[in-house]
């Protein structure tokens, strides 16, 4: 019983934390420099991971769609099929999960370490709002970076699909992309990409929350990092279900 109560209290605290992030994020002054720094750390430095993963996913999906499409003699639909799968769901979700690993663990560990070495207190002591300086900047950077990285993954995914296709049929790149975008609507691309801002918010907020509330020294830092990844991944997948439903509701 007390376990449930304390768990619920934890959820409430996390929710309040998230609410505070939202409230503080829109209020100036903005920590532009710090946000830029995180955009570099979280965004630019995730580019190789996302690009490589996207490419691999594209190749693999293309091979899979080929084998099933070939059964119906519908090889011509491979680029379009890959594009739909990638842009609507796979791109956003895979980037979200990969980044919850990379970014979530990073933020959790970094803030956790800052917490246990009193750097957060030190920030406060020099009259800096640590919440705005550490948490809001990361969340904002993450919210900006996610859709951009998702776009990158979509692109490298299609590129991978093209390579897999070109190796078999020698299709030119331009033709591939034109065919791929054949069935894509704005309502496929825009909501699916923008929904990753929510993923970004979840990843950074969960990781920050767990990082800032780290206790028990170095051991706690590792714990915060692990829990960041697990919690944000699960939350991300669950939220995705709601978001997809919502998008389908708004754009039937």
């Amino acid at each position: 019983m007390t376990v449930v109560v304390s768990w619920l209290e934890g959820v409430a605290r996390a929710a309040r934390f998230a609410g505070r992030v939202l409230a503080e994020a829109v209020r100036p002054p903005f920590e532009g420099r710090e946000t830029l720094r995180h955009l570099y750390e979280l965004g630019v430095r995730s580019v190789p991971l996302i690009a490589a993963a996207g490419f691999a996913v594209g190749v693999v999906l293309s091979m899979h769609t080929r084998s099933s499409m070939a059964r119906f003699g519908a090889e011509a639909l491979i680029p379009a099929g890959l594009a739909i799968v990638l842009i609507r769901e796979t791109g956003p979700l895979v980037s979200g999960l990969l980044l919850s690993g990379r970014i979530g663990a990073g933020i959790g560990a970094e803030l956790g370490a800052m917490k246990v070495t009193e750097q957060i207190d030190a920030l406060e002591a020099v009259a800096v709002d640590s919440f705005r300086y550490l948490v809001v900047t990361r969340v904002v950077a993450c919210v900006i970076a996610l859709p951009l990285l998702t776009t990158l993954m979509n692109f490298t995914g299609l590129l991978g699909g093209w390579v897999a296709e070109a190796l078999i049929t020698g299709m030119p790149l331009g033709t591939y992309f034109r065919q791929a975008f054949q069935p894509i609507q704005f309502t496929d691309l825009v909501p699916a990409t923008l929904k990753t801002t929510v993923f970004g918010f979840i990843i950074a907020t969960v990781a920050s929350y767990l990082g800032v509330h780290t206790t028990r020294g170095t051991e706690g830092v590792g714990l915060a990092s692990t829990r960041s990844v697990v919690t944000s991944s699960i939350l991300l997948i669950a939220t995705n279900v709601l978001l997809v439903r919502l998008i389908q509701f708004v754009y039937p």
Partner: peptide
């Protein structure tokens, strides 16, 4: 701070 708490 006790351990200096420099921003690392």
């Amino acid at each position: 701070f006790q351990h200096a708490a420099l921003f690392d």
